[in-house]
Amino acid sequence: MDLYINIILLALMAITALAILRMTNIFAIVMLFGIFSFLSAVLFVVMDAVDVAFTEAAVGAGISTVLMIATMALIKNQEEKRPLGHRPWLPLLVVFITGAALVYGTLDIPAFGDPNAPAQKHVAPYYLEKSISDTGVPNVVTSVLASYRGFDTLGEVVVVFTAGIAVLILIGGRLTRPTKRRDK
């Protein structure tokens, strides 16, 4: 049953991505991206990653969409202009070659859900076995996040903090005068 839900959701995500590619109205694109994030959150629940799904639903479908709409309100033009000057087949060719190389790489990867895959055999069993006796925390994701890999998380928090500062530097103050373009 999980497998069918998985297949259908992935197909829906592919369709949404294609729709985003073909749309020209920026508002519609932003809304479709919200749907895309939400579909991926549902998919993460199906694949047993509840914490990730939680975050994706709150961040991807919530905050990102709000920020993009706020940007659109400031930018004011809603239509993407086309076509571009350069030839359309060149990016298509690049994408096809890259995609073919990546698909070739997946051919000998272990199948989806294989319990004997190398990814399952390295450090994960240690975390699952020792989490209760080491930290007393049943949610292994929390214990790995905050305790076993505390340094990682410290780095991530600092990155979020730095990004916040950078946004404040760029658009933090009120716009007092229209910025002039530099001299020609």
Binding site: L43, F44, M47, D48, A49, V50, V52, F112, G113, D114, P115, A117, A119, Q120, L128, S131, I132, P138, N139, V140, V141
Partner: peptide
């Protein structure tokens, strides 16, 4: 997340 999934496995909450 695809790589982390184990068939018939549960979410990692002991």
């Amino acid at each position: 997340i695809t790589m982390s999934t184990v068939k018939d496995g549960a979410a990692p909450i002991i």
